[in-house]
Design a binder for these strands. Structure first.
Lengths: 219, 219
DNA sequence: GGCAAACACGAGCGACCGCTCGCATTTCCA
DNA sequence: TGGAAATGCGAGCGGTCGCTCGTGTTTGCC
């Protein structure tokens, strides 16, 4: 084995030593990338534009990232990690015992909050335009979130077949993304109203499935 | 007035005379564009690739379209027209008197059918990646569809405030798009199942709003 | 203080893209 | 049937993009 340092499996050789300045630059570049991605989408965002937004030269950008995709991947990883630690292991089993309305509050509110503060998250998840972007990272997050959802649904309503549970989780995930987009594209009172609509739609979809009759809203 | 022909307002000068061969080429190019757009999205689709798919040279493509955007616009216009005439003026007022479940069948089924046969429609509507694409055509369709929806909702439940009605229509439109995506990404029995889920979600969302209590589905 | 490594720069390379242009071929009609 | 217009071709122009490389500067460690 030709390990450069102790404990390195010598498979991929990239443990470049970073200075504090470098770490700062990386954060700067990721922030800039988030802005540019939000503004123009992943495919249309040019690395030169990201470097310019960060106030550095193109060469400097490539000192820290091997290519454009790596920027999105690292950004996605940091956001994922941030989301996980901000709200713990999201929707833990104890949520299963809550009434549907309260459970939706407990799950939807933090999710909306996070996505409002990090709009680039939805942009990255939603970008099917890139070549093979996020093939492992975004998919990993997607699968993980959906597995949690399936798990939760299984706890609430164990009589559902496996296929039905998967379909339900997929559907909830998709509906949530759609509603989230509307929430993010509005502000102030309208935004708050769309958050309520999002919850109402999820409630309306899930109530008949998990077998809890809910009080109807006043029109 | 410097009109080239009779009745031409002389503002835009482009009434080029087409032969039957040209019309055939145009249809060929639009079909090819639909394929390429579906495969790679609008932004990543190159005009050279569209020409190659159609079996013609790049120069020939630009004999019939002034630029790349015009291809998408013309494609969108043809699809819109096709949709309108295929299902009449979609969801006419008489639907308002139907029970919610039947109304959803009457509206959702033809829409799903059309989008299954023309998957490029969703691709074009969904592509926010292009510079200023569809700024008049796609928006016109969006606004028109949403206006119809608002109208229908107003007929069913006249007590809703204008803002609430708009929000509801926007929400339904968005939820529908999300469900449609899931439907299009599956086949056979799974696809049929997701169509039911789509209807169920719309039913669940709308039932409390329009004040008709619906029979709950068996889980 | 010296020196290797990390950091920073920015002109520019090669690839690709939307699109053009000069020219050949086919079609329509007087 | 002659010729104007419509159609067809494909090399290639100007531009942008992702990315490189040679070179100079800053930092951490002895």
């Amino acid at each position: 084995m030709t390990g450069t340092k102790a404990g390195q499996p010598a498979g991929e050789a990239k443990p470049r030593r970073r200075q504090a300045r470098g770490e700062r630059r990386i954060q700067q570049l990721l922030d800039a990338a988030a802005n540019v991605f939000c503004r123009t989408g992943y495919a249309s965002a040019s690395t030169n534009a990201i470097a310019r937004e960060a106030g550095v030269s193109p060469g400097t950008l490539y000192q820290f990232f091997p290519n454009k995709e790596a920027i999105a991947v690292e950004l996605g990883e940091r956001l994922t990690h941030q989301m996980r630690e901000a709200h713990g292991v999201l929707f833990t089993p104890e949520y299963a015992s809550l009434p549907l309305g309260e459970m939706l509050d407990a799950v939807v509110d933090p999710m909306v909050e996070f996505n409002c503060q990090n709009p680039v998250f939805l942009t990255l998840i939603h970008s099917g335009d890139a070549p093979g972007i996020m093939t492992e990272d975004h998919d990993a997050l997607h699968v993980a979130l959906q597995a949690r959802l399936e798990e939760l649904i299984g706890l609430i309503q164990p009589e559902l077949s496996a296929e039905r549970r998967t379909r339900t989780a997929t559907m909830v995930f998709s509906l949530f993304k759609a509603g989230l987009e509307l929430v993010l594209s509005h502000e102030g009172e309208e935004q708050a109203a769309y958050i309520e609509e999002l919850k109402a739609s999820l409630h309306g979809y899930l109530a008949p499935i998990i077998g809890t009759q809910a009080p109807s809203r006043t029109p």
